[in-house]
């Protein structure tokens, strides 16, 4: 067991967990933030994507003990000027970039990370930035449009 402190969405969390606890379970079960989801066992689907110190990572492939005292942002931690939604979140709403919504938090976080590094991505940039995230509902085009909308509406700031 280990006492693991992680700042999640600006709030310092501290939980006594087994060494093997995956970051996704620390976030979902210990910190009770259920936005990030689990969709596979093999780091393929990206539903668990969160920002770790600002970079997108798959929280199912990170141990909580590995990120002691580091900073995590989940989809619950995003906010912005669109009725409280960030430009990326609003972009997904405007462009119908989600259907069932299960892969969506991971898509939103991966897109947020992309726009921070590359505020004006091409379609190709967007598709490759999201290649670690699987969506089974949308066929991806509307997700691409969502990220483009976000880029045009302040998402890269």
């Amino acid at each position: 067991m280990a006492i693991v402190r992680i700042k999640i969405n600006g709030v310092m969390q501290q939980h006594d967990v087994e060494d093997r606890t995956l970051l996704i379970h620390y976030i979902r079960e210990n910190s009770r933030l259920t936005g990030a989801h689990i969709g596979c066992d093999t780091s393929n689907c990206g539903a668990c994507t969160v920002l770790l110190n600002g970079s997108a990572v798959k929280s199912c492939t990170v141990l909580a003990v590995q990120v002691q005292d580091e900073e995590v942002t989940t989809v619950e931690g995003l906010s912005g000027d669109f009725n409280g939604l960030s430009p990326v979140q609003e972009g997904f709403r405007q462009q119908h970039g989600l259907q069932c919504g299960y892969c969506t938090p991971g898509m939103v976080m991966a897109s947020t990370a992309l726009l921070r590094e590359n505020p004006k991505p091409t379609e190709d940039d967007i598709r490759h930035a999201l290649e670690g995230n699987i969506c089974r509902c949308t066929g991806y085009e509307m997700i691409v449009n969502s990220v483009r909308w976000a880029a045009e509406n302040g998402g890269g700031k």
Binding site: S43, G46, T49, L52, S55, A56, V57, K58, T61, V62, A110, A113, L114, H128, A129, E131, G132, N133
Partner: peptide, 9 residues
């Protein structure tokens, strides 16, 4: 290698 998330880590 992998995807952006994998390359970050």
């Amino acid at each position: 290698v992998g995807d952006p998330q994998v390359r970050n880590r």
